[in-house]
Amino acid sequence: MTVFCAIGLMSGTSMDGIDLAMLRTDGRDFVERGPAGFVRYEAAFRRRIEAGLEEAKRIERRDERPGSLAALERDITERHAKAVDAFLDSEAKGWGLPQVVGFHGQTVLHRPHVGLTVQLGDGGLLARLTGLPVVYDMRANDMVHGGQGAPVVPAYHAALARALPQPYAQGYPVVLVNIGGISNITYVPRSGDPVAFDTGPGNALIDQWVLREGGVPFDADGAIASEGGIVETVVARYLDKPFFAKSGPKSLDRNDFTLAEAEGMDLADGSRTLAAVSARSILKAVEHMPEAPKLWIVCGGGRKNPHIVADLREGAERAGAAVILAEDAGLDGDATEAEAWAYLAVRSLQGLPLTFPTTTGCREPVSGGVLAKL
């Protein structure tokens, strides 16, 4: 068993900053989780990324960088390099120098129906700036093989599920839920490949709503939503969208859901209603699972919204399932995606599959990633 020390970097659809995490792993079942950290983007830089989402709509080929996107890509990469240097000098000091970096970059466009996904991030530049080998662009090869390019995290989710402590180790089927800007699930059976797909909006609509209506970037601890109520007609409008009737594999671009259905609500009702949309869209995913899960494990920033978690728990318990937070199982719900990118980088080095027909719709299990050496 060859064990690698790896660092994973993730900037997700919430666009709030860079998650970093270290692992020692063989890319299979051995996972030793290490230190983790987070570097928040300042508000002005987040606005630059948001503007970049609009410019990215003009992209027709993966290598195109119209308008300001080339400069934005360079700046995103440089920020990741500074984050790595600071992380290795602080939180990760003494854990050893990583042998590889798994670099996600910032998704600015995802159009699986035309085989196009674009993540801003220059792996070669990151390797030069950090002095470390970098595996990047881990979604593209999946699309070459007929997949949707997302979600890619399920291989790591499955490894975590196989190593759950008691009393959770017997709770198959297990579903790991990541609630970021977009939510996705990984269904892990007792044996066989995982099943995975995006389930719908996670935090993105809530963040957009409270920024537009209240001038704040997110609803911290669900405080705004706690003053409001659920407008069921709005929830119904969202859940009636054709996306939810489709079976997996399926994936979303951040712009596939908008605030159009939420117009007319006040600030608090909107925040509470969109939290309900997030939770119920996750629960609706059971319709496309091989079997109803016995255990849900909630990761990602959305687990900090008590309304999303309470709604999810209420619905799951009615079906006889338990809902726990990642920390209840000894995991770090903030670091899971960054850890996944470290794990996937090691799998890429070994030519192991990153995606499966049951997770992205690729024709066969397929590896991926580009290695940038020094």
Rank of each mutant, 00 (worst) to 15 (best):
G369D: 03
A163F: 04
L349F: 11
L126K: 10
G27C: 03
L132C: 08
C362W: 00
A245M: 09
N203P: 11
S281H: 00
H110A: 13
D85S: 12
G124D: 11
R272L: 00
T273P: 01
A159D: 10
Q208W: 14
A150K: 10
F38E: 03
H307S: 05
D253A: 08
R318C: 09
V298P: 06
C362M: 01
G202Q: 05
D142C: 00
D16Y: 11
R47A: 15
R303N: 01
A236V: 06
L53M: 12
A158R: 13
F38N: 06
A342I: 01
R363W: 05
D89Y: 02
A220S: 11
V188T: 01
A86S: 15
P293S: 08
A316D: 08
F38S: 07
G228I: 02
A161H: 06
D89L: 12
E54K: 13
S281V: 00
G351R: 02
G52A: 12
L109S: 12
D266A: 00
D198K: 04
G200K: 07
A169D: 15
G121T: 09
M22H: 02
P167R: 03
M289F: 15
G131K: 09
D240L: 02
P189I: 07
G368P: 00
Y156W: 11
G96P: 04
G12D: 04
S247T: 13
A279E: 04
D142A: 00
Q106I: 01
I7T: 14
Y168E: 04
V175N: 03
D26G: 02
D137H: 01
L120Y: 11
P293I: 05
K250C: 01
N255S: 15
S183C: 14
I230K: 00
V234Y: 10
V210N: 13
V100S: 14
G330W: 07
E287K: 13
V101I: 15
L125C: 12
V235R: 13
L120G: 13
E64I: 06
E364Y: 14
V210T: 12
P201F: 06
T273K: 02
F87A: 06
T355F: 09
M289W: 12
L267D: 07
G67C: 01
I230D: 01
Y238G: 11
E32W: 05
D198G: 01
L331D: 15
D334H: 11
A6V: 07
G214E: 07
V195Y: 15
